[in-house]
Amino acid sequence: MSHPNRERADRILDAAGELLLRMGYRKVAVDDIARAVGIGKGTVYLHWRNKELLFQALMLRESADSTDEILAGIKADPAMILPHRMIPASFLVTHRRPLVMAMLRGNAEMFGSMGDLALKKQQDELRTQFEETMLRHGLVRSDVPNLSFALNATTVGFYFGGTLTDEFDGITPEAKAEVLAYVIRTAFEPPGEPDPLAVAEVAAELSSALEALVSGYRKGIYAHDPTRAPG
């Protein structure tokens, strides 16, 4: 059953997203958001008691939607779980979401305070689980020193490496994703074809972990909403 307050919360988030893209995080005021929805500022505060929590909720909604896209990809093809496919797929999903890109690029200070420590912990645990499961099933190389750091630094470099110079502006996200796939494949995965049984097992294990993450995100969107239906 859909809850009228939840629908209003979603309308507030939609408006906040549009204004964020137009004005940038710092310039958007709760007043602007309320006006765009056609409600009073006090009504916005019924859902989130400040602007930061409201934008955290927006980010959680984007994260839930993009993780759902990845999950659909794994359901359609379990080999999508391999690092050289999963990491570039996430890269592309992110780049196709202007809101996430705006938040990553322009609002580092807000992104850094993206609040919910329990969710942050869940994300970190998921990353560790992803790497350990891959190692255990022989889907990543076991001889890479500081594997976690190496994978993280490589991936983050693809998100931010081009922002320090305009030299690479002409490279499309799709072309970057292809390079990222190549780097991950050659640097972090063993040569040869992966064992299909291992791939299926890892896909099943990590899908359920990702589903748990999404459900945490979805709860978090409305967690600060005192008007939400009990239960």
Rank of each mutant, 00 (worst) to 15 (best):
V100S: 11
L60F: 11
T128V: 13
P145F: 09
P88F: 10
R136M: 13
A57D: 07
M80G: 00
S90Y: 12
D166H: 13
E131Q: 11
A79V: 05
A118M: 10
L117M: 10
R141E: 00
A118F: 12
E69K: 06
D68M: 02
N152R: 15
Q123P: 02
V144M: 11
L92A: 08
V93P: 02
H95V: 05
G161H: 02
L53A: 07
P83V: 15
D32L: 14
W48F: 15
G162L: 03
I70P: 04
A57E: 09
A34Q: 04
D65K: 13
Y25H: 11
I87K: 01
Y159H: 09
D166L: 12
T128F: 08
F55D: 01
A64F: 04
E109I: 00
A118G: 11
T155W: 12
D65G: 09
D31M: 10
L104N: 08
H137I: 01
N107I: 03
T172G: 05
G138E: 05
T165Q: 10
R85H: 11
T133S: 11
L60C: 07
K51H: 05
F158A: 06
P173K: 04
A36L: 06
R97L: 01
S66P: 02
T154H: 03
T163S: 10
S113G: 08
A89G: 04
D124I: 14
F168G: 15
R96M: 00
M101Y: 07
T163I: 12
D32M: 15
A102N: 05
Q122N: 01
G170H: 09
M110S: 03
M134K: 01
R127W: 08
F130Y: 15
L54I: 12
N146T: 09
M86D: 13
L164G: 06
K75G: 07
T128M: 08
D77L: 11
E125T: 12
M101P: 03
P83E: 09
G73W: 00
Q129R: 15
Y45T: 11
G162C: 01
G157F: 15
E167P: 00
M114P: 00
K120N: 12
G40E: 12
E125K: 06
V100W: 07
G106D: 15
I39G: 03
G73N: 04
T128R: 13
L135M: 13
A153F: 14
L82P: 04
F91K: 03
L139D: 00
S63N: 08
P145Q: 01
V28F: 09
F149P: 01
S113M: 12
A36E: 12
G138H: 05
M114R: 11
A76Q: 08
Y45W: 08
F111D: 04
L147S: 04
I74D: 01
T133H: 00
Q129L: 15
T154I: 06
S63C: 06
F91H: 06
V140C: 02
M103D: 00
M80W: 02
R35Q: 07
K121F: 09
V100I: 15
A36V: 02
P78K: 07
A89T: 10
Q129K: 15
N146E: 13
I33H: 07
T133W: 03
M59I: 07
F130C: 05
V144E: 00
G115N: 10
D166S: 14
A150Y: 00
K51F: 06
R26T: 14
D169N: 12
V28E: 07
L119A: 03
E132D: 10
P98E: 10
R35A: 13
L71D: 02
M86P: 00
D65I: 06
F91P: 02
A150D: 05
Q122K: 10
